[in-house]
Amino acid sequence: MPTKCWPTEWWQSLGLTVLCALAPPALAQSASQQGVSVEITPLPSEQVTAFYLNRGFSESEIEAYRSACVFSVILRNTHETAPLTLDQSDWQWQQADGQSVKPKPTDQWLAEMREAGIAKGPRVAFRWAQFPAEQTYHPKDWNQGMLALPVASGTELSVTLRWQRSGQPQTLTRHSLTCAP
């Protein structure tokens, strides 16, 4: 099971909180509030390339994706009882100058890959490696996946994550996310 800063018991919570507080700062940003825990990590293009080469893509086939700004996102519903529903298209990504930017939807990537003649196997792997566009998370549910923004490496971004819980909108904002080289 997840071994990162993620307690399942109160005594683990105490221990891990101390450990996490002592941990050196990393590129990953994690936050937890309102019964949601999020970890956003910029992925270097070499790492992205290696992952998709192992899934059957050629270098040229994954070039467009690896050139984008790719993040790994882990989101968990840590609430004791209430589910949450999210639609990734509601998330708001902004560059440092205030300009909005949106991740290219997975369906669009897949359509372009189909047109480019990329085989079905790699496309299926690509689809399931992306962070879900929509999902309902009951307590203890979580997902891990990638998303890609059409900006250059080194770009600094902020993101406001939005979701609905018991019919009420909730948000969590993270700043200073920098696209990996």
């Binding site: 099971m1 999902q135 203890k140 549910d141 891990q144």
Partner: peptide
């Protein structure tokens, strides 16, 4: 029953 994400 349903579980999204890994479980032990």
């Amino acid at each position: 029953y349903r579980a999204i994400g890994g479980r032990d």
